[in-house]
Structures are given as C-alpha cells and as structure tokens.
Amino acid sequence: MDIGITIAAILTLAIYSFLYKDNPFYKTAEHILLGVSVGYFVVITITNTLIPKLFIPIFIEGKLIYIIPGVLGLMMFLRFHRRSAQFSRIPLSIIIGVGAGAAIPAYMQAQLLAQIKATMLPLTNLSNIIIIAAVLTVLVFFYFSREHKGVMGFGAKAGIYFLMLFFGSTFGYTVMARVSLLIGRMQFLLHNWLGLIN
C-alpha cells in the first residue's frame, strides 16, 4: 500500500476525531496543516511572484526601477520595529490606493451595469417578472434613507421574502457541497485506503 495514502488516511481520521471532542490528535493534525499551508504559500509567493516580477527584472534584465517596489515591499517588514512601524503605512497606502482606484471602474462595469443590464428582461413570462420584482424589492429593502412605510414598506417586506429564499437555497447548496466533500473523504478512506468498496 502506498505510504502516502496511509499518512493521508491517518491525518483524515485525526481531523475527524474532533467530532468527539478537541484532542491531541486533532491539534497535531491542525498544526501540521497550518505549518504546511503557510510553507506552501510562502514558496508559491516567492516562485510565482517575487522571482518573475522582482528578481528576474532587477538581476537578469537590469530593470533597476523595480528596486523601488522591492524597497517599498521590504518597508512592510518595519512593522516588526516599533519606532519605524509608521513607515510601513507608505507601501500599505499604495496597495489601498491602487485597490480603491481599480475597484471603482471594475465594480461599475462588472457588477453594477452588468447586473442592471441582465435585469432588463421582457415581461413575457412569470420568471422574468419575478426576477425584476425581486431585484427591485431587495434594493428597496437595502435603501435606508427613507422609512420603510407605505409602498416602501410593502416593497421592503417583499424583499425580505426573496432574501429568505436566497439564504435558504444558498444554505442548501452549501450543505450539499460540504456533504459531497464528506462523501469524497469517505470514499478515500473506504476505497483508496482500506479497499472495502469498489
């Protein structure tokens, strides 16, 4: 039997042991996962971003301008030094500024206008009517600048019902996704590891 499958199975059982109660097996597995995941992400960050975008441009292509983001990035490490920690705000402000500036047209185009466009449907069947009514009433529910009374109150109340359908169906969908993962793990244990089922 493959030693990798046995190790994976033992770690799987160690995690499921948490269903009984918190115990040393679960804690060990949890900390292995934490360490391995952080190590994996450090390696991927270095090899997929820092080497191609920082080290190769500076040391191989001779693009010295990339020293600036390198220095700015290293300034984030000043957080470890209490007196110099305030300098780490400079690279942070670049990330926040670029993120905020890029978000406005991106959300305007991909979310706001695209969603509005997709809602402009011909009122030819019941589903289309429900879609338009649901979008409008949900928006009314989230509009807090006027008191939810009269027509607004009716719209907001209808919006709550559509939101409940959304939350319920999303919950059901999420549960089924988790259950399918559980089935996958059981198949791994009973088929791949123990060979009890085909």
């Binding site: 959300y107 305007m108 979310q111 706001l112 969603q115 509005i116 997709a118 809602t119 589903s127 429900i130 879609i131 338009i132 009514a133 649901a134 979008v135 409008l136 009433t137 949900v138 928006l139 529910f141 989230f142 919006g159 559509f162 939101l163 359908l165 959304f166 169906s169 999303t170 969908y173």
Partner: peptide, 17 residues
C-alpha cells in the same frame, strides 16, 4: 436557484457595488 435566489443575489450585488 435560477430565478428568485439569483434575482435576490443580483440585488445584493448591486448594493455591494
């Protein structure tokens, strides 16, 4: 999933945007 839930999600997305 495709009609009321999607429409309510669309309303939420517009609010998020």
């Amino acid at each position: 999933l495709n009609v009321p839930s999607m429409a309510a999600r669309r309303g939420i997305y517009i609010g998020i945007a």
